[in-house]
Write a protein that binds this DNA or RNA. Structure first.
Lengths: 341, 341
DNA sequence: ATGAAAGCGCTAACAC
DNA sequence: GTGTTAGCGCTTTCAT
């Protein structure tokens, strides 16, 4: 910066003021400084600047993985937003418990970012408390944390509407397939289950715990077993609501391989609306990770400006049902009743 | 840091030495300092440290998007590797030309990272030259840049082996479907086309430009048109080699919707082996983005240590053919010949 | 509107 | 093995 100052024939203070766009610089001097900076290919050192301003210009995000549709979409909308605010994006990937423990022990983001976005973890109270002491705004994304700024989708309403969609098609025996996630990724299972139950209760359909099962993404065998169990119930489901598209697709493949027609005999509904859903013509409940990313980013920027504002703000985003080809009217109930006589 | 020093009854130098793990600290003092640091919840400011060491502790990556299988997988392997080397990961997402221009104009990574990984761009010479002047090691990933460290997959060999796989199944009319990418993402089209041609030439099968076509990911209509053109050739292909799984899947769906059996009448081969390939039982040429990410990260760390070492090193990774259910022996050629008589 | 000077929190010589 | 000291490159009072 001294070089630039010398070349422009001014002091470093003036260079600093110019480069930060302060208005207290005469146009003439400004032009000279800018030219000098350009000629010398000069860029301000964030490190040195942050040392005195106390702001790093970084936003940190804590994610369980980058290898998932949700994260990719969310960060793809978050990143340009931060950039246009002059902020850098710092990513911490915490794929397993070991990394997670180490992160919360060392808190490497400390003093290294102006805000932290925590994506999709089910944090313990101790972890939340630890983040409280981080000395920067922490925004919880895809999870609700009491009394802290959070951005998430209305999972209850999503599952409610999804279930209603199936009810409207005449289904009465509707199974719900939870995802048991790895690596602390929260799939909002509980919320979605609540919505499912709520819709059934609303419609006067009795709850049946036999219709609620769990499986893991990618666990083909497990999924097949779970399906086998559901289908061998005395009153098997005519529809299956999976709380994640990946699981829904696995279900469809398994059913079709077993010569069970989807949606003629069994309807399948997913949750997410990731590209996979379109590939498989899967009916699903859509959420928008890019909206989530954007809202979270905007909230972060506002909190950086004024850490008191919106201290406990919760941003709740909508979902909507997208009917495609895997949900259809339930097989006529009289058939089943006749079979029972 | 002064607080820690006072609490431990030592100088700040000793605190600094202790916290950086230098061995020139007596065990007894070390213990005292560490305890004090823990009690005060102290963490070293990277900003201040980097000001004097000249190293930022950041590795920057330039990516076209995060919303793609390849990037997610590559960064998911890169990130933990950097973390365990004590480095932070700084992500620059450049989704369009405007952002790209602005990035190369302002070079925000300048002075802000110790190395830059450039993923999957087709850079102009001017851009490469600009990066040369960045003052840090630049590693090119998923692309070969003459005389600069690069990490990429052997696309020629991949396409060669993929094409051979089809030739071995008896196919002689093999179409090649290029992807015309958006946002400067390089899909290594040219290399793969070279491999395809090489395999055909090797096998004495004449090249036919009518069999080489292009389409974009997600462009259903375009893909359908291209397929229509291929199928209405006087000698239509019995196999289609798409240079990306997504396109291969789009092809399969279009064919099946048109009642053309895959693989009975037409074989389809992809390239990538992303999860989608497994969902659709797609035969494909596999590459490993996580290996790419790891190799790139290791190379970056080595170059940070010694920027002269491996200055022009190219790391070339292998591919392998994964036959699944979408490639099968070509329809018996005598049928076609008889039809011609 | 501009400059001088102090200091942000740390590390690296250099002394002891 | 430990302390003292001098900056690293900026921003920010405070003068002028």
């Amino acid at each position: 910066m001294a070089d630039v100052a010398e070349r422009a024939g001014v002091s470093t203070s003036t260079v600093s003021r110019t480069l930060r766009g302060l208005s207290t610089v005469s146009p003439e001097v400004r032009a000279r400084v800018e030219q000098a900076a350009r000629e010398l290919n000069f860029a301000v050192s964030r490190q040195a600047a942050s040392l005195v301003t106390g702001r790093t210009g970084n936003v940190a995000v804590l994610v369980p993985t980058l290898d998932a549709w949700f994260m990719g979409a969310a960060l793809s909308s978050l990143a340009p937003l931060l950039r246009s605010a002059g902020m850098e994006l710092n990513v911490y990937v915490i794929p397993d418990m070991a990394e997670r423990t180490s992160f919360f022990e060392r808190l490497p983001a400390r003093r290294n970012a102006d805000a932290l976005l925590v994506f999709s973890f089910d944090l313990t109270d101790a972890e939340t408390a630890r983040l409280d002491g981080l000395g920067m705004p922490v925004i919880y994304v895809s999870q609700h944390v009491e009394g802290r700024p959070s951005v998430y989708v209305d999972d209850v309403a999503g599952a409610l509407h999804g279930t209603r969609h199936l009810l409207n098609l005449g289904h009465r025996r509707i199974a719900f397939l939870e995802t048991v996630g790895a690596s602390g990724f929260s799939f909002s299972s509980n919320e979605r289950l609540v919505g499912y139950r709520q819709a059934l209760t609303e419609a006067g359909v009795p709850l049946d715990d036999d219709l609620v099962a769990a499986t893991a993404v990618g666990d083909k065998r497990g999924t097949a077993e779970v399906l086998g169990r559901l289908l061998s119930l005395r009153e098997p489901p005519t529809a299956i609501f999976a709380e994640q598209d990946e699981v829904a697709v696995a279900v469809i493949r398994t059913l079709r391989r077993t010569q069970i027609a989807v949606p003629e005999r069994i309807s399948v509904l997913g949750f997410d609306d990731q590209p996979l859903a379109d590939w498989f013509d899967l009916s699903t409940v859509a959420q928008s990770p890019s909206d989530i990313g954007r809202e979270a980013g905007e909230l972060a920027l506002r909190l950086i400006e004024d850490s008191q504002a919106e201290h406990e703000r919760h941003v709740i985003l909508p979902t909507h049902v997208i009917p495609r080809a895997t949900t259809a009217p339930a097989p006529r109930p009289q058939d089943e009743q006749e079979a029972d006589r």
